[in-house]
Design a binder for these strands. Sequence first.
DNA 1: ATAGGGGCTGTAGCAGCTACAGGGTCAAGA
DNA 2: TCTTGACCCTGTAGCTGCTACAGCCCCTAT
Lengths: 134, 134
Amino acid sequence: MALTIGDLGKATGTKVETIRYYERIGLLPQPSRTAGNYRAYGEAELGRLSFVRRARDLGFSLDQVRALLKLSDDRSQDCARVDRIASEHLREVDRKLADLSALRRELKAVIDSCNGGTVADCRVIEALGPASQG
Amino acid sequence: MALTIGDLGKATGTKVETIRYYERIGLLPQPSRTAGNYRAYGEAELGRLSFVRRARDLGFSLDQVRALLKLSDDRSQDCARVDRIASEHLREVDRKLADLSALRRELKAVIDSCNGGTVADCRVIEALGPASQG
DNA sequence: ATAGGGGCTGTAGCAGCTACAGGGTCAAGA
DNA sequence: TCTTGACCCTGTAGCTGCTACAGCCCCTAT
């Protein structure tokens, strides 16, 4: 019935080392141990790790995940605090998207300017050079 | 005429520690030194660091920058190799953009589902939970 | 002479893992 | 029963790309 760390990893798509890492930094509680000192997990731990994985997949930082876990542990708390964390994360994602697409535009322009001679005439190298800072 | 490391940093918008770091990892050559063991930079180094900065701003990894620098040093090389590095980077950027906007969509959906009760009814927490994996 | 603002080296820290080394444990097969 | 091999354990070091010290030296101005 109890899951080994390997089982838990397979069930959640998490590497064993990562699970131990999460435990070490206090994101996951220390599980009980078998006689042979193996970690033994149950449904609760599976749920918690799934939560962590899902939040990580949505791009939350480990600190944010920690905060979300804490909030989710106290079911009577105001949902607004959860919303605040998520919304701030969304704003950050939007910032990253904007930055990345600006970068993409610029990179594309540099690449497109290349007409394929030697490096001496290469627009990519030239675009990176000090003379073309502006 | 020679620039100190601080001058070079100001001229390129790079922190002094970062310049020393680039030197340590071999991205910048070791500059000559003054009698008092200060690094002394000239125009060449300024150009090289500007190149690095610009490439970094375009999201190239340090390894990619290293490769680009090597290519740009040999002006007779085929431009195609430069293009290949840049194009691969572009593809990577496109992948990241796609991932990030998928993530954004999902995150937005989770947030929008919140109607603001307690955590017990919070859709955000629920969406993160193990029951909603699919 | 001294105070400050730089410079120098070397090392440790950040996120978020990942990858060992060097051992112990456990179930299955010969 | 013994042994093989897959798994588990701890602890530590590595990855990217910096950043931030500590503890020192140098140079200029007053």
